[in-house]
Design a protein around this nucleic acid. Structure first.
Length: 582
RNA sequence: GCGCCCGUAGCUCAGCUGGAUAGAGCAUCGGACUUCGAAUCCGAGGGUCGUAGGUUCGAAUCCUUCCGGGCGCGCCA
């Protein structure tokens, strides 16, 4: 489906080729929304080097060659050489009608779909998901949805911390508890981990058992593996509960953690050694990707086998990147991991290139993000000082959202207006809480830290998740009333400025989705959503729908219906629900 | 010491990869409900874009200096 910009861009390309010859084919006409017109083209300025003309001359020539009589009311030159385009209402109406009849709402499919691996969330077994996992989990999930929407094959990968020396003590502690809890529940995972750790640090006999247990685990002892698996399953149940509540699309089958790669580590070391990329250094085997200098100017190593013969995270990361490229066939790998790991990841990519696994067009990208801070400006912690679990966070959010939703509902009910039913309050509060948390996280640039603030994110006014949901709920309210009255959407006509603004905002949805897919920046979707929602609110204020004349009513209903769908879809791509009432 | 990230209105942030007078939200002030959800809308005030240079028709955006904040740099992940 061709959007307004697509169609205009084609006409510009033709005009540019007419004036300046075929070498201008494919040149960017720099079409942007404008304060001075509906759209503007900066091509005469931006292409100055290629046209050789001064911008105002170029603008005049382009206008002369531009065949847009069917699309624009007028095109005028302005300032140093801008081209201001004033679109015909009929042109806007037609493209909007096409978008409205499109299942994909104007989101084009990628011309070259890729296999994209998205590595996100990645919690540790026997610990609960906590605030530190929030950003990776929700950003990764949103990007996975967006990349999928534009037609890529997306493979989610949960790089679980499910192997290694801590499992000795965890299994022994698990066995100690066996009598009390049976084999069904560990209970509080964090408490479980803490207790195991405490025993390990204070009881030498226990520590000794733990060490022996690690050996058994590494050696593949059947009974030990069974215990290990129970721990893993128990933890996955806990992750599942959080993912479900947060609306995360990661499935159990997407798990490919350290245990999955463990059998491959020896081979990785051998391969890199055989290729001459890994060398012995201070008793360890290391890869030294060029260009990384440490404290005394020494090269920084990726330690792929430790002095004691064990393997660390670098080896697992290398095994994982090889697997993703060679076995999963990824051409794009996203690491949704905190910003501090930037150097480590670049070293992994470099090593993977040297090994011949990572080569164009395949590429790996670090989707870096900053920290979630508490009101004190430090990492988010609970009163007790440990990191707050995601479940606690979500529960608190729902509680706070419920208070807001309940209050609004009772206000409306006492005013005799349609309100959320008592039985639906919980589910609406849930949707509001999740939207508040996610939208607050997404709405600013990923790489920056942000302060977690309930009052800000849950505010019913301003640029918040709840505001967007409210805008959507209002669209649904009109549509319900229209349906009850037997009114149906019809031919779109654009006359009022608010109709035009709304249609133009709707029309850029597809481009925004692709922009997010390319830039991996969810905040661009938020900027768009807020603009769309506020444009709709202005439309609402200025353009009566149900009380308009039949033709106008049908047209406006079509705009409202499309707005509802776009809001819902855009929120959905961020993993945010759009309730019909709130 | 080396390297990476950040610095835009009182506060929280955008700014579409170099384009027109730097835009929003919150807060403040002033308007709009006997029209579909006022959780809304309309309007006002408020910024030497950390600093000093440079590149050019044109810089918040690109290059360099310095200042301030965060983070990383060998056996944790």
């Amino acid at each position: 489906m061709a959007s307004i910009v697509d169609i205009l861009a084609q006409r510009f390309e033709r005009a540019l080729v007419t004036v300046y010859g075929p070498e201008l084919k494919g040149a960017d006409p720099m079409l942007r929304r404008s304060d001075h017109a509906d759209f503007q083209s900066n091509a005469p300025l931006s292409l100055k080097k290629r046209t050789g003309d001064n911008p105002r001359d170029a603008a005049a020539k382009i206008i002369a060659a531009l065949d847009v009589a069917d699309l624009c009311e007028r095109v005028e030159m302005s300032g140093p050489g801008f081209l201001n385009l004033h679109l015909k209402g009929s042109f806007i109406a037609e493209t909007t009608a096409v978008q409205a009849s499109d299942e994909r709402l104007g989101i084009a499919l990628a011309s070259t779909p890729e296999t994209v691996v998205v590595d996100y969330s990645s919690p540790n077994i026997a610990k609960e998901l906590h605030a530190g996992h929030l950003r990776s989990t929700i950003i990764g999930d949103a990007l996975a949805r967006v990349l999928e929407q534009v037609g890529n094959k997306v493979i989610r990968q949960n790089h679980l911390g499910d192997w290694g020396t801590p499992f000795g003590m965890l299994i022994e502690h698990y066995l100690d508890l066996g009598e009390q809890v049976g084999d069904t529940a560990i209970g509080d995972l964090n408490e479980f981990y803490r207790a195991a750790r405490a025993k390990f640090d204070t009881a030498p006999a226990f520590a000794e058992r733990a060490r022996k247990r690690v050996v058994l685990l590494q050696g593949g002892d059947e009974a030990t593996l069974q215990f290990w698996k129970r721990l893993v399953d128990e933890s996955k149940r806990s992750f599942r509960a959080v993912y479900d509540k947060l609306g995360i699309t990661m499935k159990d089958s997407d798990a490919a953690g350290e245990s999955f790669f463990n059998p491959r580590l020896e081979g990785i070391v051998k391969e890199l050694t055989d290729k001459g990329l890994a060398v012995e250094s201070e008793g360890a085997i290391c890869v030294f990707p060029p260009g990384f200098k440490g404290k005394e100017g020494n090269p920084v190593p990726l330690i792929i086998r430790k002095q004691d013969g064990g393997y660390g995270y670098a080896t697992t990361d290398l095994a994982a990147i090889k697997y993703r490229l060679l076995e999963l066939g990824a051409t794009r790998i996203l690491y949704v991991v905190g910003a501090p790991q930037a150097q480590h990841l670049t070293m992994i990519y470099k090593a993977a290139e040297m090994a011949g696994w990572l080569k164009p067009p395949a590429r790996a990208q670090h989707v870096a993000f900053g920290s979630v801070l508490g009101e004190d400006g430090k990492m988010l912690k609970s009163r007790a000082g440990d990191s707050v679990t995601l479940m606690e966070l979500l529960d608190e959010g729902e509680e706070r959202a419920l208070a807001v939703v309940r209050e609004k509902a009772s206000e409306r009910a006492s005013a005799g207006e349609e309100a959320v039913a008592e039985g639906d309050l919980q589910s609406v509060a849930h949707a509001v809480a999740i939207s508040a948390i996610k939208y607050a996280d997404f709405s600013a640039d990923r790489v920056k830290d942000y302060v977690f603030s309930w009052s800000r994110m849950l505010a019913t006014i301003g640029n918040t998740g709840p505001y967007l949901q409210y805008a959507h709920a209002r669209t649904r309210s009109i549509l319900r009333k229209a349906e009850a009255a037997g009114y149906t959407p019809g031919t779109i006509t654009i006359t009022a400025p608010e109709e035009k603004a709304l249609a133009l905002a709707l029309g850029s949805f597809g481009a925004v989705v692709h922009d997010v897919a390319a830039s991996l920046e969810p905040h661009r979707m938020c900027t768009y959503l807020y603009e769309l929602a506020s444009t709709f609110s202005s439309f609402w204020n200025a353009c009566p729908v149900l009380k308009a004349e039949p033709a106008e009513r049908a047209s406006r209903l079509a705009l409202v219906e499309l707005t509802a769908k776009v809001l819902e879809r855009a929120l959905g791509l961020l993993g945010i629900e759009a309730p019909a009432r709130m």
